[in-house]
């Protein structure tokens, strides 16, 4: 990477109290302070957020798309891992 270029940051926004921070995109910034301010200016212009997280993109380690088959496909035929074989009593709400 060009030394004079600012590093890339991933931005996570929590839309309102009680919900998760969700990944919304990325931006360039010289450091964390600037990244949070830039995120405010780029991603919360339309009342999208009440809280911002930023993570330098280099600190995110991803699974390899080439390994997607061995990583994820084996779970496809194991329906018994889903808790769908229980009968939920009527009195239990919000399951």
């Amino acid at each position: 990477m060009n030394q004079s270029e600012w590093p890339l940051w991933e931005v996570f926004i929590r839309s309102k109290q009680g919900l998760d921070h969700k990944h919304v995109g990325s931006l360039h910034a010289a450091d964390a302070t600037m990244a949070v301010q830039n995120a405010r200016d780029v991603y919360t212009r339309r009342l999208e957020g009440v809280s911002i997280w930023v993570v330098e993109s280099t600190h995110i380690h991803a699974s390899n798309p080439d390994e997607a088959a061995e990583f994820f496909d084996p779970a496809a035929d194991k329906v018994y891992r889903h808790p769908t074989f229980y009968t939920v009593p009527d009195s239990i709400k919000h399951m």
């Binding site: 600012w6 931006l27 360039h28 910034a29 301010q37 830039n38 200016d41 780029v42 212009r45």
Partner: peptide, 11 residues
């Protein structure tokens, strides 16, 4: 100078 600051100034 960069997109982020372009937006900041427009804001």
């Amino acid at each position: 100078p960069v997109l982020e600051q372009d937006l900041a100034m427009a804001n």
